[in-house]
């Protein structure tokens, strides 16, 4: 076979391959099919959960930042109102609302499955895995199974409200000096 013939065959093969790839990429484009119904943990009582998250996760050097996908607002961290600062004022209703939507939008399908199963296997959510430090988390482990923040979060995922645990977690502060 001459060199010219081989080159022609090679070029033909390349065109055939390109046509096959084009056909493989062809997909059905049209309007979205149906609607996706998801379950979310309760909005009622979320204020206590947000307050518990604030010192553990929502400080300005962690999730109290605009560039985070899990973005936590609060009176001691990132403010929603452009005129507010972290050094004054309580968390506003709008900030609780924004934190709620940010938290449930993180992994909606998985969160829905956990909520639908009454909070079973909460470690399915990245929210719990990151907070417990069982998946890579730059902020490390912020809660241990059974501690106040853990009980607060897990009760919320189960559609319940662990008010006392959430309150205690929100009061987290410096230990007594030895």
């Amino acid at each position: 076979m001459s060199t010219e013939k081989a080159a022609r065959r090679l070029m033909l093969g390349a065109w055939v391959l390109l046509a096959c790839l084009g056909a493989a990429c062809e997909g059905e484009v049209g309007p979205p099919r149906g609607r996706l119904d998801l379950e979310a943990p309760p909005r009622a009582g979320f204020e206590g959960v947000a307050d518990a998250l604030q010192p553990h996760c929502g400080t300005l050097d962690c999730h109290g930042q605009f560039m985070r996908n899990l973005r936590l607002y609060g009176g001691r961290g990132l403010r929603l109102d452009a005129a507010a600062t972290p050094s004054e004022g309580e968390t506003t209703p709008a900030e609780y609302e924004a934190t709620y939507w940010s938290t449930i939008s993180l992994e909606p399908e998985t969160l829905s499955e956990v909520v639908a199963s009454g909070g079973a296997q909460p470690e399915r959510t990245i929210l719990v895995r990151k907070a417990r430090g069982t998946t890579r988390h730059k902020g490390g482990a912020l809660m241990k199974p059974g501690d106040d923040l853990d009980r607060c979060m897990l009760a919320w995922l189960a559609g319940d409200n662990a008010r006392d645990a959430c309150f205690n977690a929100s009061r987290w502060g410096a230990p007594e000096a030895p």
Binding site: L60, G64, Q65, F66, L78, R79, L80, D81, A82, A84, T85, P86, S87
Partner: peptide
């Protein structure tokens, strides 16, 4: 200056 993401 202090603002929504800074305490000053």
């Amino acid at each position: 200056p202090a603002g929504p993401a800074s305490a000053g």
